[in-house]
């Protein structure tokens, strides 16, 4: 039984990781051996990496990606935290409507918004700017943050807030000094999810930008060209694809220590 599960685990991991290995392998291959079909590069080279880092557009794209991703995540977290807390704790008129609307936004096919957004942003002067991407990212990251965070807030015993109130805390102090520290693991998880969402987006990035002023890394990669018109930029694309996964990996590794379960242990009985 254990063996069978182990086998299935290995199978799933291989299935998930082989394409990644393939991309990594491609990124180290010399252009002349790109099509040789072997998993291990026969002729190793770092020229693909050197090439993309000499490409100003790609570097600019990385900066755009990081900047736009962090700002969108931050804003979505600030509003998402407050909204999720309200949903988890308070009974207010229109609560169901709010939950329904955020679910609606999460379900909405983004492709259908591209054309209207393009027109709106052009007439507002937001087209090809950072805010032009940050705004739609916040819009689509918010339902995600509200949903995951309210689940986390519901886990925190309401009696802790009542205790804080009795101890003389204002509602904001109770939230900031008691609830938020306990919700940190949930907030980190949510922030990572929101950041990955912004980081991965291609649709808005390609349709709401026209220059490297705001074009993010995934969109920039699609504009790569080979060194001559007869050469495919496969190696550079592979190298860029590897590079843009690195910030996510760092982000997750950096915060994973904070994503520990059982932080609320000892609050109430048991």
């Amino acid at each position: 039984m254990k063996l069978r599960w182990g086998f299935i685990d290995v199978l799933v991991i291989l299935y998930a990781l082989i394409p990644v290995l393939w991309i990594v392998s491609l990124s180290f291959k010399d252009p002349s051996t790109i099509t040789d079909g072997s998993l291990l590069p026969t002729k190793w080279t770092l020229s693909n990496y050197a090439g993309i880092f000499r490409n100003d557009d790609f570097l600019r794209g990385l900066v755009n990606s990081i900047g736009i991703g962090l700002i969108s995540t931050f804003v979505a977290m600030v509003f998402g935290t407050m909204a999720a807390y309200a949903i988890a704790r308070l009974a207010f008129p229109g609560k169901r409507l709010l939950i329904g609307f955020s679910l609606l936004i999460a379900m909405f096919p983004q492709i259908s918004l591209v054309t209207p957004l393009f027109q709106i942003e052009r007439s507002l002067g937001l087209f090809d700017t950072w805010p032009g991407l940050i705004l739609p990212y916040i819009t689509f990251a918010l339902p995600l943050t509200i949903y995951t965070l309210s689940a986390f807030f519901k886990e925190i015993p309401a009696e802790l807030e009542r205790a804080a109130k009795m101890d003389g805390a204002t509602p904001f102090q109770a939230f900031w000094k008691v609830i938020v520290p306990l919700a940190v693991p949930g907030m980190v998880t949510t922030a990572i999810l929101a950041f990955i969402f912004c980081w991965n987006d291609f649709l808005f990035a390609i349709s709401l930008t026209s220059t490297s002023a705001a074009r993010t890394a995934p969109a920039t990669i699609s504009f790569f060209t080979g060194s001559s018109q007869f050469e495919d930029p496969t190696g550079s694309i592979a190298a860029a694809a590897v590079v843009i996964t690195i910030p996510i990996v760092i982000f997750v590794l950096f915060f994973q220590r904070r994503i520990v379960a059982g932080l609320t242990a000892g609050a109430v009985k048991g």
Binding site: E159, A163, M166, A265, A267, K269
Partner: peptide
Amino acid sequence: DIAMVFQSYALYPH
């Protein structure tokens, strides 16, 4: 200015 002791104690775990 009154203090309360809760059934679940409601201690701040952090």
